[in-house]
Amino acid sequence: MDIFAVLSLLDATIRLTTPLLLACLAGLYCERSGVFNIGLEGKMLAGAFGAAVVAALTGSAWLGMLAGVGVGVAFALIHGIASITLKGNQIISGVAINFLAAGLTTLLGQSWFRQGGRTPALPQGGRFAPIELPFASELAGIPILGPIYSELVSGHYILVYIAFLMVPLTFFVLYRTRFGLRLRAVGENPKAVDTAGISVTLLRYQAVLIAGVLCGLAGAYLSIAQGSGFGNNMTAGKGFIALAALIFAKWRPVPAMFACLLFGFLDAMQIRLQGVDLPVIGQVPVQAIQALPYVLTVVLLAGFIGKAVGPRAGGVPYTKER
């Protein structure tokens, strides 16, 4: 393997990691506030659809992204109403959201565009273009560092940079701001937060809606940056991989990035390993690599490699004492 093969593998890793990372951080905000979110998949899918429809109709990727975020937030609001206001079961709400997104996107897509659920091809400007960072081509000649900069760091879609910048931002928000402190507290001990005179409901809504925004961005990335248009069920389980990554990272932002990078790398490897004979082990079935994130998460949760314990108040609706 020469350096360019390695770089292209890493480049693919970054591209495949981005939607996972955005969805994973979405789950992080939500679950850190004590609201389980297995509806990441559905919110992402709905966001992808919204973004593709608006981008196709207006020809503006930015408006598309905004629409994706709007749809993501709308679905997050459903989750918020069900699990915060009505104190319903957060898991069931997530299941419903996943189904609703899968059904509605195909149904509306088919009845609006009649292309088997796909949205029309994006017009000029409807899709994000890769961003060349300054001096990318000039520096490409420098050995090792040059190609790394020009191939790996430069030349991605804006949402890739947003996703990776969200990691330090989330770290800062979570551990260095008052909002973050309260967010972490409300996921561990909502009663204490309530006793301090802070609204549990408001905090949890904020967290759930932030998750909606991030899922919308993840969806927009899939349909109008990485892909060109929406296809049926295009998230294909990424929301659940993101959930697995979140647990793998023990609900912390920086490890979340590494977990997503690991799962993105596995995804990139899986395409390259098809039909390749490896020394000693021979051919690795694609399915084994596909199942690896889930297996790793189960093993981690079971405490065989470290221990993952979620926010203590997770999944429990908060009822003020009367």
Binding site: S83, S93, V95, L100, G103, L107, G117
Partner: peptide, 23 residues
């Protein structure tokens, strides 16, 4: 009408009889 309509109805039934049961 696309078969996905069932999925939508199903999702709404799960949402309202399940998650928003307390409505």
């Amino acid at each position: 009408i696309n078969r996905e309509m069932i999925v939508v109805i199903q999702a709404l039934v799960i949402l309202f009889t399940g998650a928003m049961e307390g409505l």
